[in-house]
Amino acid sequence: MALALVAGGCSQDEYVAPPPGTTSDVADPAAAADTLRDLQAAIRAGDGAAAAALGADPRAHDLLSAVAVNAAALELSDVTLRYVTETGRTSGGDAWDGQVAITWRIPGLDRASARAELPVSFADHGTSISAIGGTGARLPLWLSAPLTVERQGQVVVAVAGHGAAARGYLAAALRAVAEVRAVVPGPGGLVVEVPADAEGLQRALDTEPGQYSAIAAITAPVDGSQAPGSPVHVFLNRTVYDDLDPVAAQVVMTHEAVHALTEAVGARQAPLWLVEGFADYVALRDVGLPLTRTAGQIAAQVRQQGVPERLPGDGEFDPTASHLGAVYEAAWLVCVTLAEHAGEGALVDVYEQVRDGGDLAGALRQHAGWSEQDLTAAWQDRLAGLPAVAG
């Protein structure tokens, strides 16, 4: 199943820059600033050749050319690059590492610019660049490798590498948007980023190795910030996603689209059973799968351990936790139970009110005429009545 967790740094609210390094006799901040200014101009112009000319070696030529081409394909705006400080020496007598502040935005899809600081390795006394990114630092996908970009209407898919796979991701994303808007009307588009592999996903989100190894997709701010308006995209873990059957893959894509299109990532006060359960409610709404598949894991758990005493807690949604599938199925059934009692419209109203900071108890009373205890009891009855449990 998919998981909507924000991959942040030390603070969820702001980036804290590292302390400045000691300026060496090699570093030339003025030259580095000029080089970044030239790279910024090349990126804004989509000029791969001009960007490549700033590379220190063939590998850097290829990367910088790809960065400019990626930016053009994504139609990026608000691209800025600013030298911040030296962070250390690298190999070579005229090379050093620096920290660079960068902004970028996909116009029409991102409400505000993403902001990040990332390592850049300078060479030739700062007149060229040998590498972008480093260990333990977030590396935006468009700055990491050549991309294949597919776009239709308000949906953009960016895939590391070349090939026809991007078209399949685009089709799933387009269907996901339609399925979400059938339940929750509203404007807005969707951006899906697909790193080449699990390591690429780790770099794009700056996470610990293996943190999302079993997760098919994540919805997260592209720069790790939870500041209002920070761009939120869907990231696919193609190692898992590509092995799913078509129905399961579409469920994952739609689930994540719910998070992105309804701004669920910023819903800090909403319980995860509501955030995740609602996303699965929308994703499974028109699929027509039997309960043996959509609730098989929670049914097996109920058979072994009995009906849970309470609704799923936030800690149970840890991506590394055991029985994660059962937790998601349980959350989905909470939302199904609520919709069966008060109607789909009431479920949407409860979701939106709580997502926007409203009190869960008040939302349940207002839209469903239930207390949380009433909901819990009805959900427990629903679990006990599952065919694999009651039978």
Rank of each mutant, 00 (worst) to 15 (best):
residue 235 F to Q: 01
residue 235 F to Y: 15
residue 241 Y to H: 14
residue 243 D to I: 00
residue 243 D to M: 08
residue 245 D to H: 14
residue 246 P to K: 05
residue 251 V to M: 09
residue 252 V to D: 02
residue 252 V to I: 05
residue 252 V to G: 02
residue 254 T to I: 04
residue 255 H to G: 08
residue 258 V to S: 13
residue 259 H to G: 07
residue 262 T to C: 09
residue 265 V to W: 04
residue 267 A to T: 07
residue 269 Q to S: 14
residue 269 Q to E: 13
residue 270 A to D: 11
residue 271 P to M: 11
residue 273 W to L: 02
residue 274 L to E: 07
residue 277 G to W: 11
residue 285 R to G: 01
residue 285 R to F: 10
residue 288 G to S: 06
residue 288 G to C: 03
residue 290 P to E: 01
residue 291 L to E: 13
residue 295 A to I: 02
residue 299 A to Y: 14
residue 303 R to D: 08
residue 308 P to L: 06
residue 309 E to L: 13
residue 313 G to R: 15
residue 313 G to I: 00
residue 315 G to L: 06
residue 315 G to E: 13
residue 316 E to F: 08
residue 317 F to V: 04
residue 319 P to W: 14
residue 319 P to E: 05
residue 319 P to N: 08
residue 326 A to K: 11
residue 327 V to R: 13
residue 327 V to E: 10
residue 329 E to D: 07
residue 329 E to F: 06
residue 333 L to R: 15
residue 334 V to F: 08
residue 336 V to N: 13
residue 336 V to E: 13
residue 337 T to Y: 10
residue 341 H to C: 02
residue 344 E to Q: 15
residue 345 G to P: 07
residue 345 G to L: 06
residue 345 G to M: 01
residue 347 L to F: 10
residue 349 D to C: 03
residue 349 D to F: 03
residue 353 Q to L: 12
residue 357 G to A: 04
residue 359 D to V: 08
residue 361 A to P: 04
residue 365 R to W: 10
residue 366 Q to M: 08
residue 367 H to T: 00
residue 368 A to D: 01
residue 369 G to R: 11
residue 370 W to C: 01
